[in-house]
Design a protein around this nucleic acid. Structure first.
Lengths: 227, 227, 227, 227
DNA sequence: CATGAATGAGATTTCATTCAT
DNA sequence: TATGAATGAAATCTCATTCAT
């Protein structure tokens, strides 16, 4: 049984702006420090809004985190819908996919970080918000590409498309997500754009080549039999 | 409404055991929840030791975290020294490296998680504890392997060994580190050992193949020119 | 992780309904959780009205509470005016009064609860809102009844009517207000209508009997002397 | 990932005293303001201890409340074991029980208040802490007393002992628990010791009388038939 | 070596209330 | 009349760390 007489100062009275400011600050801080490392206090200080507004617009910290994930992971979906629409020749398609993921990850460090946080939390938020991360349409595109490559007699048959997509994503991903540890253990400065470009070129060649029909050389033969 | 009747546990008086218990609990909790998510209280509760002991043995929370990193990242170094000792034929070596990293990451989820946390923190602890993660000896081994492959006329020349190592690590790493998000977006259950085995086989073929000298086929030619 | 997509409900534009909805929800929540336990947010959520309306119609939370008390305690006054109108024979009147209070309390758990809250708050609101709980007209009725009983030679003289009224109210009250603790300590399920009916019958006999002129028996004599 | 360097001032280092101080302050404040009305801040301020100690000793606010209930309700159990041990003559026993409850409630306003709070919360804490309020041993004592009274030919047979006990408790209880509202509606100052004493005397007479075998008077006959 | 009591700061969340529209 | 945005204070509880024994 208490009475409280709040003194108001100067309300912003711009709901959309308030919401956006919170979301933007939260995106930055969650991706930098993770769910536990970023406090609501940090976020509202960065967003320059009243703390209460987080609860007004997002319910609670988890709700805010979910909204951030939705927005950031939505960028991937948008990108995937935009790109990969037109058909190219098979080898080019492979290159295009690699390039596109590589660029996207490079330009969206928020995404890279949040994806990593999410995996570390065993996909806990994604599990409770299905639809935030959906099955990628690139899979279909890649399947068509592989089939076409085989039809033209340049690609090996029976390549598993899902595992291939994982390979394509992996190589790009690790350059950005594991920048700091890889720099140390491999001895390459992965912050450098030049090195990143080298990496992408390397990967394109490696994987395009890896899909080709093997030459009749004896050693190549040996390789295939060993698996 | 937890019951808080304090139980006077009698002192353990076993310094080495106490230390190990703390380290074990901390490894689990730090890898599960990260530095911020795991509290000293959580750790001592899991380790069933007195809280003060953490400060006794490790100075503070950061010291404990550093000790955990040292121990866990040390396993990688140990593994790298053990394996890759003697030369096989080049293609086999590639397979062996891939396989070894893949197994190591599968068997050391702590390592995978802590590596990810560390990257998310921009390698902050690794930077202040140099020597925890050193330049890998595998690089030399791989370089020898590549040179031998070229000498035997089966591998392409001018393959960048550092980027190749990154590729080798990447593919294995992502299967384990991005298990949860990849499962959703690609539609493969990466928890399944069978699927993991498929992934490894796929990767071995892809990369071995990717290192071969390309056939004289027109399309392959096109590929190389495009880069 | 509540979903907070705001739904723009269109204004009700029905002042009387809005007021009633607030009052109804507040009555329920205040009686369930007390003044401190029921928040304005709880109440407006239950009433499905805009929070500002509480302040519009009732000034503030205390005003709302006062309005609730007024309404609920008014029911007692109404009941007291309705019942006990015409004279019956004295013993019957006693029974009637007991029965009526008992039923009223059983049918108005809100009243029971708010009365208890009010006592726990040392009658704070009643003190600042005199007239909400007035001296009961039943007192006069009971006095007449006692006098008549004495005149007829069946009731003891010199029975204090105020204390008698307290006794009548007490027994009914406790069955409803202390339902939960009494059930445990006495071992009767006071939720059961059958048990409540037994209790009422028991009380009627006990008190009717208690008002009679004691027999000349030696033991009864002893009792009276002992006090 | 924050660092905090706490500055300690002057630890009390007296666990038993600290615990007692918290418990005493909590008992007072919970009984005065209820669970919701008493804040942990209020309690630690009154107890002059560090807030953290509440959580150290009692887990959380609910745990503290449970401990308070245990202590306060324990007083009733202690009282019940102490009193009512020796046999008196039946009428005296009735008086003794009434008197004892009346005194206990008068001397333990904490108990009265917490009992009321607990009922208002539908016995929520008692339900989760069974054993705090047990079936009273007075029941047995009262049963013996009734039987003896019947044997001696002074008490009516077939009086329900459980309902009688409720009656005995009720009358004493209401004088203390409903002091504020009853004062207003009946017009008696229930704060006054003199009035309380009158009330007790009234109740003793009423109930002792109510247990007697009814006289053969015609009106008394009518009463019994009406039920 | 080991214990658990003690601490101040800060975490998330809810409070009653007022503002602009 | 009605809405929902906005607010400062305070709620419960946890944090990393240090103290006396």
């Amino acid at each position: 049984m208490k009475s409280r007489t709040p003194v108001n100062r100067k309300p912003t009275r711009n709901p959309e702006l308030t919401r956006r400011r919170i979301l933007r600050a939260a995106t930055r801080l969650f991706s930098q420090r993770g769910y536990d490392g970023a406090s609501v206090d940090n976020i509202v200080a960065a967003a320059k809004v009243n703390k209460r507004m987080v609860y007004h617009y997002f319910g609670n910290k988890e709700g805010l985190y979910a909204a951030v994930l939705q927005e950031v992971f939505g960028r991937l979906a948008d990108m995937e819908l935009e790109s990969f629409s037109r058909a190219h020749d098979p080898a080019d398609t492979i290159r295009k996919i690699l390039q596109t993921y590589f660029s996207f990850l490079g330009e969206n460090p928020d995404f890279v970080a949040l994806l990593a946080w999410e995996n570390l939390h065993h996909g806990r938020f994604l599990a409770s918000n299905p639809g935030v991360l959906t099955k990628t349409p690139v899979l279909q595109r890649l399947e068509d590409c592989l089939r076409e490559g085989v039809r033209r007699g340049i690609f090996r048959p029976r390549v598993n498309v899902k595992h291939l997509l994982i390979s394509l994503i992996s190589i790009g991903y690790v350059y950005h997500a594991n920048r700091y540890t890889l720099s140390q253990s491999v001895g390459l400065n992965l912050q450098s754009p030049k090195v990143l470009q080298e990496g992408l070129n390397h990967a394109v060649t490696l994987i395009q080549q890896g899909l080709l029909i093997p030459t009749g050389g004896s050693s190549a033969h040996k390789i295939r039999r060993r698996q």
